[in-house]
């Protein structure tokens, strides 16, 4: 999308408070800008997957998917779908030339052993100390399922979170303390939301960028945690 089109989009958004700030594609673009050339990256399921579409030209990034592929390519076209070539979200994907397959113990050795540079995850809640809750709402009627989330936050060098700033009913996802069950403690480095980008430094949140038309005060008003 070119800059004029983007700006046009922002203008339409500004007219509606509900649509204030970045949309998910723009959020993904912000994350992509922070992924350096040569990085080994694991993208969580959902919004994080969008990041792959926005890596700036001239940068080469290798995607790891924890079910056993390094060098994941784009989502498969319907005629090339292979039910035995999937990503962690069980979507049919492709492998780039130079990709490698491996078993699960090796895949999580890459994760736990600190070989993956960056992981981008979604969140139910992130605390001002960088605690992440993204695997369970604690609702006893839900079927508990954890997958690789706890391994990723324990082992990957840098954890980025990409999420809407507030839930659908308007409560802040950026909180003083997570009330949902934790995925990991003090694990998140940076949070990208529709309203702002925030860094977790020494257990405090610092706003490093505001979405167009969004003031610091506005973000603070929408945030349970204290912003700096």
């Amino acid at each position: 999308m070119n800059r004029n089109l983007l700006r046009k989009k922002y203008d339409t958004m500004k007219s509606n408070d509900k649509n204030l700030g970045w949309n998910v594609n723009e959020m993904a673009q912000k994350v992509a800008m922070d992924i350096p050339d040569g990085a080994y990256v694991n993208l969580g399921i959902g919004i994080p997957e969008l990041v792959a579409g926005y890596i700036p030209e001239g940068r080469e990034v290798i995607y790891h998917t924890e079910n056993g592929l390094l060098g994941m390519g784009k989502v498969a076209e319907s005629q090339t779908e292979d039910p035995e070539l999937v990503n962690a979200g069980k979507k049919y994907v492709t492998a780039i030339p130079g990709a490698a397959y491996f078993h699960h113990a090796d895949s999580f050795a890459m994760i736990r052993g600190g070989h993956i540079d960056i992981c981008v995850l979604g969140a139910y809640q992130v605390s001002e100390e960088g605690d992440l809750a993204n695997w369970s709402t604690g609702n006893p009627d839900d079927i508990p399922a954890v997958g690789g989330a706890m391994d990723l936050v324990a082992g990957v060098k840098t954890i980025y979170v990409i999420t809407k700033h507030c839930t659908k009913i308007g409560s802040s996802k950026i909180v003083k303390q997570c009330t949902y069950p934790l995925t990991g403690k003090n694990v998140v480095s940076r949070i990208y939301t529709d309203l702002a980008i925030m860094d977790v430094i020494d257990k405090k949140l610092y706003v490093s960028e505001l979405a167009p038309g969004v003031s610091f005060e506005y973000v603070q008003q929408k945030t349970e945690a204290r912003l700096n």
Binding site: H103, H104, S107, V146
Partner: peptide, 15 residues
């Protein structure tokens, strides 16, 4: 009965 295990821990416990 369910014993829920993180995916990497499951793989490593089996290994």
């Amino acid at each position: 009965e369910l014993e829920l295990v993180p995916q990497g821990t499951l793989a490593e416990r089996i290994r």
